[in-house]
């Protein structure tokens, strides 16, 4: 896979600078919703212009280029250590080129060595499958929106949230109100019902790989997604929390089995600067196709 490293650098560049088209459409729709002359409308106009400028200049949409998550599906027999090495090298190169901010800090010493590579960075999620194809998806998730994520252990008495889908709804909507505009709204929620504390959050983030326009194949979760989206957009939090019509652009909910004693609802928030891309690679590691 000699072409792998340059392909990953290009994947990082494009993810950082170019908004995926499904999200861009949702943002344009949200802009039209806001009344002219309001600060919510001008925030959406700045967001829209920012998306155009980033693409045109090939520079980061947001200066917080976030935590780096590669999701890889590859055929059995793939050289996984080789992939991880290429991912680290690609991250270092993309940082030197300014596609990524120097964004990785040693929590013990407080030092930032400027490479973006260290324990946990980049995060590489590897999955072997029987298909001959290699797919690599990338999420860059900023810290502001990561900080407003929340995990609920049901029941929560204060929210009157019991261990059922209505309880989940109450927990998720509480997360929306707690987040206000701090996660750079209008954003998208990724939610996992069930799992444990680690897998719940992990699965909630994985929801961001779905297209905004898709519908959940499980009717119960589809109803919950539509309900939370509709209700959140009636709360008047609006872009940046300035007040306004669009508080969320989408809600995506997945579920994992839980143990009887635990019932977690894990909520991840993705800011409007929803940086997600993906590629199909050929056996030489060259980009064959873009996924979003």
């Amino acid at each position: 896979m000699s072409g792998l490293k340059p392909s990953l650098v290009e994947l990082i560049r494009r993810t950082s600078a170019e908004m995926p088209s499904d999200v861009q459409e949702a943002i344009l729709g949200a802009l039209e919703q806001e009344a002219r002359g309001t600060i919510a409308r001008s925030a959406m106009e700045i967001i829209e212009r920012n998306i155009q400028m980033a693409r045109h200049r090939s520079q980061p949409i947001c200066q917080d280029t976030g935590s780096i998550h590669f999701y890889v599906d590859a055929p059995i027999g793939m050289d996984w250590p080789g992939f991880e090495e290429a991912a680290r090298e690609a991250v270092m190169e993309a940082t030197r080129k300014g596609h990524l901010r120097q964004n990785s800090v040693d929590p013990i010493t407080g030092m930032n060595d400027g490479t973006n590579v260290g324990p946990g960075s980049p995060a590489v999620h590897l999955h072997a499958w029987r298909s001959p194809e290699t797919q690599v998806r990338l999420l860059l998730k900023g810290g502001g929106c990561e900080n407003v994520g929340a995990q609920y252990s049901l029941p929560v008495e204060g929210l009157k949230a019991s261990r059922d889908l209505e309880g989940c709804r109450r927990a998720i909507l509480d997360a929306v109100v707690q987040a206000q505009g701090k996660g750079c709204g209008p954003g998208v929620l990724g939610v996992c019902i069930g799992g444990d504390r680690a897998t719940g959050y992990e699965h909630s983030k994985r929801q961001f790989l779905r297209l905004l326009s898709d519908r959940n194949p499980l009717p119960e979760l589809d109803r919950l997604e539509q309900d939370v989206l509709r209700t959140a957009n009636q709360l008047g939090i609006g872009p940046m929390g300035f007040g306004g019509k669009t508080t969320l652009l989408g809600v995506k909910i997945g579920a994992l089995n839980r143990v009887p004693a635990s019932y977690f609802v894990s909520v991840s928030y993705m800011c409007w600067a929803f940086r997600r891309q993906g590629v199909v690679l050929n056996p030489a590691g060259d980009i064959q196709e873009w996924l979003y």
């Binding site: 925030a43 920012n50 400028m53 520079q59 949409i61 947001c62 200066q63 502001g144």
Partner: peptide, 13 residues
Amino acid sequence: FHAVGGAAQVLAE
């Protein structure tokens, strides 16, 4: 003063 979060290009300009 609240700037638009994420609008890194518009603001860098």
